[in-house]
Amino acid sequence: MSVETMLFWLFAILTCGGAVSVAVSQNVVRMAFSLVLCLGSTAVMFLLLGADFVGATQLMVYVGGTVVLLVFGVMLTATGPFTKIKSSGADAILSGLIGVIFLFIISTTVTAVDWGDISQKVAIGTHQKTAARGFNPEQQGNTTRPLGLSFLSVRADRDLNLSRNVPSVEKPVEDAPKLSSGYLLPFEIVSIHLLVVLVGASYLARAKRRVATNQ
């Protein structure tokens, strides 16, 4: 077993364990901690999958931001009896059963698909980059630069060969093949979304301002 495989199984178990304990735990604070464990291990899985930047973002935004927010919420609202929630035994068994059935359905459909075969079928007609360039090879998880460029709509990983005058057999009719999807628009528009959400959240969270106090 290679180191990567060992790491994968270690963190897969941690991720699943965290998720299960979020689902079964009766104590909100424990749930929050399990969530941290689960999300943190997922970040490591991202690193294993060669997505370093996504892994770091997951740690920073999700674990260091969103979960902190949730824990804050727990702390502000957890008073006495409501910290612990007891659900009845029948409920627990029923939901556990539903969960197992659900898991069965998803795992028999999704993991039964031959992904390699599908990739081959789909790969026909996608443009591929001519050469991967950069300081460090992308295959090893150094996707920061290509990601950054794709936020500027520059798909250096896909479109580099478009401008080159390679006679192409597949696309003789169109002289300018379409560009691959770049993410300039979502990158920009999400800032408006965040602004709106910030305004909304701060409106809801702040105390009602006293009217007519400024002389």
């Binding site: 370093d52 770091a56 740690l59 260091g64 300081f135 996707t143």
Partner: peptide
């Protein structure tokens, strides 16, 4: 390649 970003991410924990 994400060195600094990862540092801050971990520090934020």
């Amino acid at each position: 390649d994400v060195g600094l970003f990862l540092t801050f991410a971990i520090l934020s924990l």
